[in-house]
């Protein structure tokens, strides 16, 4: 390979990296690996993810569940319960921007889990959650 070709190839990889640093599956894989350390043999489950999503955690009166803002159907548009601002669908099945940026995903799991669940979500819960919303429909 000539130096020029290598340069182009590197550029291409770097460019692709900026657009989509992660994918929903690479994020699920990362959280699964982390969860497996505590629970050997852990496998992500869309069913458990749905219950993280739908459960009324009883922590916040205004924001009882994830679905309060993200809609019961993760493929549909949501609405912020306090400000009424529209929230684009959470499901990567219809919104390709979702779950492509680890820093963004961690920021929002951090904020939303503390508000709704009352604590950080575990790596296992995060893997389950992404598995569920990626499916694109309720089970």
């Amino acid at each position: 390979m000539t130096a020029k070709k290598i340069g182009v190839a590197i550029l291409f990889i770097v460019g692709a990296g900026i657009a989509y640093a992660e994918t929903p599956s690479s994020l699920i894989a990362g959280y699964t690996a982390e969860a497996s350390r505590a629970t050997p043999g852990f496998a992500p489950s869309a069913e458990r993810g749905q219950s993280v999503f739908m459960r009324k955690w009883g922590v916040s009166k205004t924001m009882p569940s994830c679905a309060t803002c993200h809609n019961d159907q993760p493929t549909a548009e949501g609405k912020h319960v306090v400000t009424s601002k529209r929230i684009a669908p959470l499901s990567p099945a219809v919104n390709q921007k979702r779950f492509t940026d680890l820093a963004k995903v961690e920021k929002w799991f951090g904020r939303n889990c503390k508000e709704v669940v009352g604590r950080e979500c575990s790596a296992a819960e995060k893997a389950d959650f992404i598995q569920f919303v990626s499916k694109g429909s309720q089970i």
């Binding site: 205004t62 306090v82 951090g110 904020r111 939303n112 503390k114 508000e115």
Partner: peptide, 12 residues
């Protein structure tokens, strides 16, 4: 200074 409790939201 107080984004962790920002009008009832966590905006850290």
């Amino acid at each position: 200074k107080g984004l962790d409790s920002h009008f009832g939201a966590n905006a850290t």
